[in-house]
Structures are given as structure tokens and as C-alpha cells.
């Protein structure tokens, strides 16, 4: 599948934003808020900023961005529509929570708002994952592991951002570092499991099934219907070379998981220079997750390519 850059930016940026919002909300619920309320306010501004930047980016790949309002209407059947509704709905409690933190008022209302914000973040990212996981045409996406990966990666990138923004202002609480480490380990395990799963499945659909000509024999393409690639081939036929995919997977394991985990560990053990270590961890992970998301698209194979010479999909 062709990786649309605006969708990569959207899913990674808003994923990290929702992750950060999730941890901020949990901190509020469990009374683990930092002493300085301006820190919390800065953090939620970063979270909502990333979410908003991502959502705006997601409209860039549309043919008619100006009609995007219509995408909120079909939540009964469409995961894309559900994602839009959940994303907008999450702004309400998180926006109110940000306002409360800005004013610095003490109110018990902040707890339900935090719970709703956390739930909204989880639901929105889950919907993002389900947009892909509901497509039966792409075996690398039609998996329960896909929304799980989206959720864990959003949580872990959010946790790194939470740690970084905290480290700039004050001491990073131990629970944040531990959350980062557990998240990184879980995400690495899930991603490896995902890659093993897609590698083990050769695809159950064949060119013979697509054409219904298997009773005669093997189906081979003879004359193409067009001399140059059409939309279907450009959009659905995009593929990354196997050897490049292997290298990029290793890069993801290193950049998205190993290096950040090492940095977090050093920051936790040394107790000094935390902002620098968390900055390195976050920057390396940012490159790592962009590569991870690019691979998610580039490794995905579409059934329609069976008509264009693929033997299995």
C-alpha cells in the first residue's frame, strides 16, 4: 500500500498527543500531578497541539478537505467516521481540563474530566487502528494485533513526551520512567509478534481464486490492460523490497525501542542530565515511529494485485 505522508504524520503525531493526554489524565486521576500547575498546562497544550496538527495533516491527503465535516455522519458503519467523532468529542473534556489547569482552580469536576479525556484518547486511537484492521483486503492489516500496536505505540510515545516535558521543569517521577520502560518493552514485543505473524502467513487468496480460472490451470498475466500503472497499481501495488524491509525493521527495533529504553534507564539510574537523555530518547523514537508507520503501509499487500501478476495475497 502506498504510504500517504500526511497519514503517517497524522497517526504518529496525534497518536503521541493522545498518549500524552492519556498519561496526563491518569496523573490527575491518581493525584500524581506535578507541583507546578504551569507544567501540566504546558503538557496538555503540547498534547492538544500534536493532536490538532495531526488531524489537520490527515485532511491534506483528501481530494476535498473542505467537505471533511461530512465524515462525522457515518459512525454507524465506518471506523473512519467513528475516529473523527471520537477525536472531536475528546476535545471537550480535555479542553475543559486544560482550562481548569490554566485558571488553577480546585474542583472535583477535574476527575471525571480526566477520566473522559483518558477514555477519549484510548477510543480515538483504537478507532484509528480499526480503520486498517477492518480491511479484509489487506492480510497484514486484518489483524487484532493492529489496533493493539496502535494503542501501545501511542501510549509509549506519549509517555516519552510526558517524561521529556517533565524533565525540563522538574524531577521526573519514577513511575513515569517505569511506565516508559514497560511501554517500550511491550511495544517491542507486540511489534515483533506482528512481524512474525505477517511473515508466517503467505496469503490465502490466489490469482486462480481472483479470476475463477483455477480449474483450467495456473493463471499468468499475458497482456496488461494498460501500458503504464493506473491508480490501483500505484495505490495498492506499492511494495518495499524485502531486503530493505529487513533493514528498516531492525532500525525500528533499535530506534523506536532499544535506544529510547537505554536512555530512559540511564536517566533513571544517573539522576542527573535527565532532560538531555529524554530529549535523545524522544527524538530517536520519533524517527523510529515514522519508519515503523511507513513500513506498516509499505509491507501491506492488497488482494487486487492478484489481477496484476501477484500469485498470492
Amino acid at each position: 500500500m502506498h504510504p500517504a505522508y500526511s497519514v503517517i504524520v497524522f497517526t504518529t503525531a496525534s497518536g503521541a498527543g493522545y498518549g500524552l493526554l492519556f498519561w496526563l489524565s491518569l496523573a490527575q486521576v491518581f493525584g500524581l500531578m506535578p507541583v507546578d500547575r504551569w507544567l501540566s498546562f504546558t503538557q496538555i497544550v503540547v498534547a492538544l497541539g500534536l493532536i490538532t496538527a495531526g488531524l489537520i495533516s490527515s485532511t491534506l491527503h483528501l481530494g476535498h478537505s473542505e467537505r471533511a465535516i461530512g465524515a462525522f455522519s457515518q459512525w454507524r458503519t465506518s471506523w473512519l467516521s467513528r475516529e473523527g467523532v471520537a477525536a472531536v468529542a475528546t476535545y471537550v473534556p480535555s479542553g475543559l481540563m486544560a482550562f481548569i489547569w490554566l485558571l488553577g482552580v480546585e474542583t472535583s469536576w477535574v476527575i471525571p474530566l480526566a477520566l473522559l479525556s483518558a477514555a477519549g484518547a484510548v477510543v480515538t486511537v483504537y478507532c484509528t487502528g480499526m480503520i486498517y484492521a477492518s480491511l479484509r483486503t489487506i492480510r497484514q492489516w486484518y489483524l487484532g494485533l493492529v489496533p493493539a500496536n496502535y494503542l501501545v505505540l501511542a501510549a509509549v510515545t506519549g509517555a516519552l513526551l510526558f517524561a521529556l516535558t517533565t524533565a525540563i521543569f522538574e524531577q521526573v517521577p519514577a513511575w513515569v520512567s517505569v511506565a516508559c520502560l514497560i511501554g517500550l518493552a511491550t511495544a517491542a514485543a507486540l511489534k515483533s509478534w506482528y512481524w512474525q505473524t505477517i511473515d508466517a502467513d503467505p496469503g490465502k487468496y490466489t490469482a486462480e481464486m481472483a479470476t475463477g480460472l483455477g480449474h483450467i490451470g495456473k493463471v499468468r498475466p499475458l497482456d496488461p490492460p494498460h501500458t503504464r500503472p493506473n491508480f490501483v497499481m500505484r495505490e495498492m501495488g506499492y511494495a518495499v523490497a524485502r531486503k530493505h524491509a529487513e533493514k528498516l525493521r531492525r532500525f525500528v527495533l533499535l530506534g523506536l525501542f532499544a535506544v529510547p529504553a537505554f536512555m530512559v534507564l540511564i536517566a533513571l539510574l544517573l539522576g542527573i542530565g535527565a532532560p538531555v537523555f529524554y530529549l535523545i530518547a524522544t527524538c530517536v523514537a520519533a524517527v523510529g515511529i515514522i519508519v515503523e508507520r511507513w513500513l506498516f503501509f509499505a509491507e501491506a499487500e492488497h488482494v487486487s494485485m492478484l489481477f496484476y501478476g501477484h500469485e498470492r495475497a
Binding site: 467537505r67 495498492m236 489481477f307 496484476y308
Partner: peptide, 22 residues
């Protein structure tokens, strides 16, 4: 008049029957 050109329908079609008009 209401299509936003998100291309998701073309992803959902196993027959490659939908083509986007750039």
C-alpha cells in the same frame, strides 16, 4: 458532491474496481 476523496473505499474493494480521479 459529498465524496471527500479519502480513498478508503478503494482500499476495501478486493477487485480493484474503484479508481481515484486526481
Amino acid at each position: 458532491d459529498t465524496c471527500i476523496g479519502c480513498k478508503l473505499c478503494s482500499w476495501a474493494c478486493p477487485y480493484g474496481a474503484r479508481e481515484y480521479d486526481y
